[in-house]
Design a protein around this nucleic acid. Structure first.
Length: 615
RNA sequence: GCUCCGAUAGCUCAGCCUGGUAGAGCGUUACAUUGGUAAUGUAAAGGUCGUGGGUUCAGAUCCCACUCGGAGCUCCA
């Protein structure tokens, strides 16, 4: 439907003769209206009642803005070369007329040649055109997203002895964060009046920032941020490979008309980015599921191969979250997610695998520096699954050692029967999911993934979907929020040593000690330690202050008293100075990093050579 | 997506209500200073006041739209 909308001082029209046979029967007399919005309307092929209703509501909205009550609907075929049949057009126009509540509406006769005079007002909003199609009407949402709100959930708290208590009966006194999560999830009650502290930190530490030239929720990462992110990515990948995941890489965009996509689309409640290219309607992946399922579909699998695990670190997964939801690194539209699927031959094997991955997820978080006290667990399952697997669920809750939030569904609505996640509760009381795992009983069949069982019969595997850490950006958000809590409670904020962009800062007292500084930094980098040198012509006090502001753990002032075998070390943890030789320093640092990955310094060695990335 | 709030120097912000010469601190640059564990001194440069339009003799300031950011709502398998 195409509409030309004009805010007029006056319109005068007069039907002169019938243009088509099906023209309305009217008395052809001249009509004049003052202070009116005239909408010239062309109804096009494929227009329907929804489009007509949408059109009239858009018209109502803009009329409210310009403060006009009178509307004239004026059939006007010349706006389009793809017209609907006259009967459809007339009925939709009549529908629009009847839907114009609160407006003083009239309609020019359909099917007549008319002469007319208009005097259009001169303000900026007086003229506008609208094209209304089913696409522009409403964003496409998957049916899963639409029906999600209709699901009936029952909420409980499960204590470590396996008892399920109703939310309002549970005593949250010593479980404040769990209470936040429970309220957050079940009642949806929140109140915050300031941005989360990690947003300022990610800018101040030159980690990441918004990129206005991209879409909202697509961040850019500066050298510091990229280093931290890369370290985390390597760490999680190493851990998954140790557990038995095989790393793959799959496309980031898919044809939405591919048969396996169409049905999955409607089962995964996420909004997509779409791209039209050469007649194809492509969408950007919102997880690694499809890629891995399509791959597994083409594998020839025997029950002897299972469990089999595919892993991908998606850079990126895309979810077009509502704009109002996007905040810093907590919630993005493009994010990096480790995604590991385990294909299992039956439920007992899936349950065994589930246990392993639960432990994996806890170890991964703990290695990053996010401990059990930092998160609250939620577990969700169908009633049937609970009745058949009580022991597993209670055992899982016991491992966490504190009460967890339970959501139970009477019937299975999603493709999984069980799902858990760890939620970090931030300084604003907001919950964000980190690690998660699900037991999927549907997609093996949907994607035609088959293995041959002991009886030589094809079967569909049960699939577990695990992200052992959750989105990498969200892990960074968690670390920054934790640091901010530390700072608020009087402790020095810091990142884990293995993630620090600079681990050791050398400060030569004056220029003549720069060479010694370079020798020490060489020695440290040979030992996989990130050291740099503040060679700027600033006072010692100033340079120490700047290093402290960058959260650098070890600061070494280098002057007459120092040599390779005698270093004076200022430790940020204590603010005290200690003396040791270079070997002792290397050992102290490496012993804290032990099995973590290493990336070399991602900055110029000399601070004087660095641009300021203060945003 | 909706409602409300915001956008001024590289950064953090003042000025806006009540229209008339664009301000501070930090940072940057230059010079001096060569230092011992959280801010050395002096000087200079640096701004289409987010974008577009309107009102006005005159708009950073008042009005409208848009973009981006924030809070709330909705949402977050």
């Amino acid at each position: 439907m195409r509409i030309l909308q004009l805010h007029c001082d006056n319109i005068t029209y007069e039907p002169t003769k019938k243009e088509i046979q099906s023209a309305e029967e009217i008395d052809p007399k001249s009509v004049s209206i003052d202070e009116v919005v005239v909408c010239f309307v062309a109804v096009e092929k494929d227009d329907n009642e929804d489009i007509a209703k949408d059109a009239i509501s858009q018209i109502q909205e803009s009329m409210k803005k310009i403060g006009c009550q009178k509307l004239l609907l004026y059939p006007y075929a010349h706006l389009s070369s793809n017209l609907a049949s006259p009967s459809t057009a007339l009925s939709l126009l009549k529908l629009m007329e009847s839907q114009s509540e609160g407006l003083d509406v009239s309609r020019a006769p359909f099917g007549w040649t008319k002469s007319y005079n208009v005097k259009v007002k001169g303000h900026p909003l007086a003229e506008s055109s609208k094209v209304i199609t089913s696409d522009s009407k409403k964003e496409k949402t998957s049916t899963a997203l639409e029906s999600e709100s209709k699901i009936k959930s029952y909420w409980y708290i499960m204590t470590t002895d396996g008892e399920m208590q109703e939310l309002d009966k549970f005593n949250f006194t010593s479980h404040k964060k769990l209470e936040s999560l429970a309220k957050y999830e079940s009642v949806k009650k929140r109140s915050v009046d300031e941005p989360p502290p990690h947003v300022a930190l990610m800018k101040k530490l030159a980690i990441a920032d918004y990129e206005q030239a991209s879409d909202q929720g697509n961040m850019r990462f500066f050298p510091n941020g990229r280093l931290i992110k890369s370290q985390l990515e390597q760490y999680v990948t190493n851990m998954v490979k140790q557990y038995g995941g095989y790393e793959v890489e799959t496309p980031i965009m898919y044809d939405s008309h591919h048969p396996s996509m169409e049905s999955y689309f409607n089962r995964f409640p996420a909004r997509q980015y779409s791209i039209d290219s050469e007649g194809k309607h492509l969408f950007l992946r919102f997880a690694a599921c499809f890629g891995q399922f399509l791959m597994a579909h083409d594998f020839q699998l025997s029950y002897k191969n299972l469990p089999y695990r595919l892993y991908e670190l998606t850079r990126y997964s895309f979810r077009r979250e509502q704009s109002g939801e996007l905040v810093g690194l907590r919630r993005l539209r493009a994010f990096t997610m480790p995604d590991c699927h385990a294909f299992c031959k039956d439920m007992p094997q899936a349950v065994e695998e589930f246990r392993t991955r639960f432990d994996l997820s806890r170890n991964v978080l703990s290695g990053i520096g996010i401990e059990q006290d930092d998160y609250e667990m939620a577990i969700r399952f169908t009633e049937d699954f609970y009745n058949e697997n009580k022991e597993l669920i209670i055992e899982t809750v016991k491992k966490i050692g504190k009460p967890v939030l339970v959501e139970m569904w009477k019937e299975r609505f999603f493709y999984f029967v069980l799902k858990w996640e760890f939620n970090y509760i931030d300084n604003s009381g907001k919950a964000s999911a980190l690690s998660t795992d699900q037991i999927d009983v549907e997609n093996g069949d949907r994607y035609g993934i088959e293995f041959i069982d002991e009886q030589n019969k094809p079967q569909n595997p049960i699939i577990l979907h695990n992200s052992p850490s959750g989105a990498i950006e969200r892990v960074m958000y968690t670390l920054l929020e934790k640091a901010s809590t530390d700072s608020r409670e009087g402790r020095k904020p810091q990142l884990p040593l293995w993630l620090a962009p600079t681990q050791v800062r050398l400060i030569p007292l004056k220029e003549e000690f720069l060479d010694l500084g370079k020798k020490i930094s060489d020695l440290l980098s040979k030992n996989n330690i990130r050291a740099d040198i503040d060679d700027r012509n600033e006072s010692i006090g100033k340079r120490i202050r700047d290093a402290e502001k960058e959260w650098i753990r070890y600061i070494l002032v280098i002057g007459e008293k120092e040599s390779i075998s005698k270093l004076t070390i200022r430790d940020r943890n204590t603010s005290n100075e200690r003396e040791m030789n270079s070997d002792e320093l290397v050992n102290e640092i490496l012993s804290q990093i032990n099995d973590k990955p290493f990336s070399s310094l991602n900055l110029p060695l000399l601070v004087s050579k660095r641009p300021i990335i203060q945003v």
